[in-house]
Design a protein around this nucleic acid. Structure first.
Lengths: 159, 159
DNA sequence: ATGATTTCGTTGCCCGTTCAACTACATCGT
DNA sequence: ACGATGTAGTTGAACGGGCAACGAAATCAT
């Protein structure tokens, strides 16, 4: 009795070891961003891109960063960053300042309100990370996980 | 000289060990879905949700699954699944069959074209997984990664 | 100098996702 | 039997992201 049931045809299958890791990564990819955005929206009315931008500005000298540096740091696309900055600017959390030296460049500067929002969003964000990551994993396991992921991630960005 | 530079105020910081793992997970969450969709669109004109749906149907008895089972299996929201099925149906890859026993339920059935598309999409998908995951990691490391992620993932869906 | 090329950033269009109604059917209680 | 509650699935509005086209300023070549 060969197993060539037409309803379950022989289909190319991933190696089980790979499949397990792959499924897990995809699950993270599908669920984590949604979860993050929901939490941040709830706590501070922003989403993850915006939080990342504010965070980058907070730890930048003069609370200011050029548009491109912002995008590069956060690994976000340029249009995505630009539009996020526009949203933040409309809410007064950030301001665009044209760069003296280079007419094309734009400096993004964190306002006091922006800092306030970031400070308000951060504690629950940290809590979420703890409750999600550390909840089940030891420090050693977290380090192992980070080590492994850090070797996978660079391969995601390129062809 | 206290380090209370107004431009770099004391801000709540995540534990470095956590921070590293967290950053890595978020990076996967931001980059992997985009990458997946791009690849699948290129190879078969579908996106990941749709590929997952086709895949679930392929390994379902009778190539048929109820709407809800489809959503639950893939961890996708119900509207998302419904709309994806609509798209697949418009392209003839899937058909809706009203359930005899329960007037509310809908059975989703894979067409021959749908199977063809799935079979066309799968090999490059596997290649992508190999080139992305296995590219740098040994089988043992992949197993470790999957073990760790499988303990994190359940915590993403709740609360 | 001036035209060609490259770089920085923005915008428009299209599409997919979410969230909150909403329809339709089933089921439960009495 | 019949109204109340619950469940399956769909739909409409708002919104964010990708891609490609664009404008504007700097740089380079001759």
């Amino acid at each position: 009795m060969p197993t060539d049931d037409p309803a379950a045809p022989r289909v190319p299958r991933m190696d089980p070891v790979h499949a397990r890791a792959w499924r897990a990564l995809v699950a993270v990819g599908e669920q984590l961003p949604t979860r993050l955005d929901a939490q941040l929206t709830n706590d501070a009315g922003i989403i993850n891109v915006e939080y990342a931008i504010l965070g980058a500005l907070v730890s930048a000298p003069g609370s200011t960063l050029r548009m491109g540096a912002l995008a590069e740091r956060s690994l976000f696309s340029t249009p995505r960053t630009s539009k996020a900055v526009t949203r933040l600017q409309k809410r007064g959390l950030v301001e665009r300042i044209s760069c003296a030296g280079d007419g094309r460049a734009i400096n993004v500067h964190l306002t006091r309100e922006g800092l306030r929002t970031y400070l308000r969003a951060t504690p629950p964000h940290i809590e979420l990370a703890r409750d999600t990551i550390l909840g089940e994993l030891t420090d050693e396991e977290l380090t192992t996980l980070a080590d492994l992921l850090d070797r996978v991630i660079p391969r995601l960005g390129t062809d």
